[in-house]
């Protein structure tokens, strides 16, 4: 009991510290983002028609506060953002928070499925290629993984669309299909068109991570299989399956968790490319359209939110270490 109390106490301080740091990270991201926005272009011309007079354009600039000095604009953004208020999208003419809430489910569902796919396929493939290093199948996996690592995401997406969408016509080429409303959340998991639409984007997004995890697990496994305790295990006559999965795999998992955690952040962030190739209506698509239209409030909110995701994911990864690696628990409890 006392051990647990000490542990959770330590954890609470740790989490509180991390959350405090996250605020600083997000403010810094916002500051950098804001200082870059001036180079993206002038939003006004995307918000008015061809025949709108110069006076009206000037007046609109003034109304939106775009003529204020940088510090004032940033200050206004920061104060509002702290209160959870991200302003109005220039392009959609709606509150940014509403837009993000609307698009969040699409991105999270896609990222989640991709991450699970990457793990579920990547880890077994990694273990297999480590055990049967010279097998024909292993070599096949390795070649495949090379393609996965080196082909750019958009190309993979377009190739998939071409093959499964245009030539075979098995899967829809764009969008999210029919979605079901569950409270404020929309899900594509409950309809067949939603599930079909998910397949190609999820594979596209997962492919890079899948190959990364596979190569990582393989390398770690090879390392662990050479260690003494595995040799002892074998010498004791333990069955191969037990040695590989209970002893070896478990010991490879710490780096895998770190990388997977960090990669989950990138999956969400890099969903931008996949989303735009498949016209997947998530936050990434929202962001990329916002860049084109110089929709500053949307860009700012998105970047701050992605920063927040990264901080939270890192935090979860750190907490998971404690769960997986007993050595850390002992150190912190005694310390």
């Amino acid at each position: 009991m006392e051990f647990l109390f000490g542990f959770s106490n330590f954890m609470l301080t740790f989490i509180a510290q991390r959350l405090l740091q996250s605020v600083i990270v997000m403010l810094t991201v916002a500051l950098i983002a804001f200082s870059l926005f001036r180079y993206v272009g002038d939003p006004i011309n995307n918000m008015v028609g061809q025949d709108t007079t110069i006076e009206e354009r000037v007046e609109l600039r003034e109304r939106l506060g775009l003529n204020d000095p940088f510090v004032v604009q940033f200050g206004r953004f920061a104060i509002n953002a702290v209160q959870g208020e991200f302003g109005f999208s220039y392009q959609h003419r709606r509150p940014v928070s509403e837009l993000i809430a609307e698009r969040l489910p699409a991105t999270l569902e896609l990222s989640l499925v991709s991450a699970i796919l990457a793990l579920a396929v990547g880890i077994p493939m990694g273990v297999y290629t480590a055990i049967r290093r010279d097998g024909l199948l292993s070599r096949g996996f390795m070649t495949l993984s090379l393609i996965g690592v080196s082909l750019p995401t958009f190309l993979i997406g377009i190739l998939l669309i071409l093959f499964f969408g245009v030539i075979l016509r098995w899967l829809p080429t764009f969008g999210r299909g029919e979605v079901v409303q569950l409270g404020w959340w929309t899900t594509g998991f409950l309809t067949s068109s939603g599930l079909k639409s998910l397949i190609m984007p999820a594979i596209t997004l997962a492919l890079f991570q899948m190959t990364l995890i596979m190569r990582l697990v393989r390398a770690e496994m090879l390392e662990v299989l050479r260690t003494d305790f595995v040799k002892f295990g074998r010498a004791r006559g333990l069955p191969d399956r037990f040695v590989y999965f209970k002893i070896a795999l478990k010991n490879t998992l710490v780096p895998v968790i770190t990388i997977t955690g960090l990669q989950l952040g990138s999956i969400i962030a890099f969903a931008i490319i996949t989303e735009s190739v498949f016209q997947w209506p998530g936050m990434g698509l929202l962001f990329i359209q916002a860049i084109g239209e110089v929709d500053i409030p949307v860009m700012a909110a998105y970047l701050v939110m992605i920063a927040f995701f990264f901080v939270v994911i890192n935090l979860i990864v750190d907490v998971l270490y404690f769960v997986v690696d007993p050595r850390l628990r002992v150190d912190s409890a005694s310390g």
Binding site: G165, V166, G175, Q279, L285
Partner: peptide, 18 residues
């Protein structure tokens, strides 16, 4: 009506009958 921003995706959506 669906906005499809990428040229390649838009063309594919048409050819595939979507």
């Amino acid at each position: 009506f669906t906005p499809i921003s990428q040229d390649a995706t838009r063309v594919a959506a048409l050819i595939s009958g979507n």
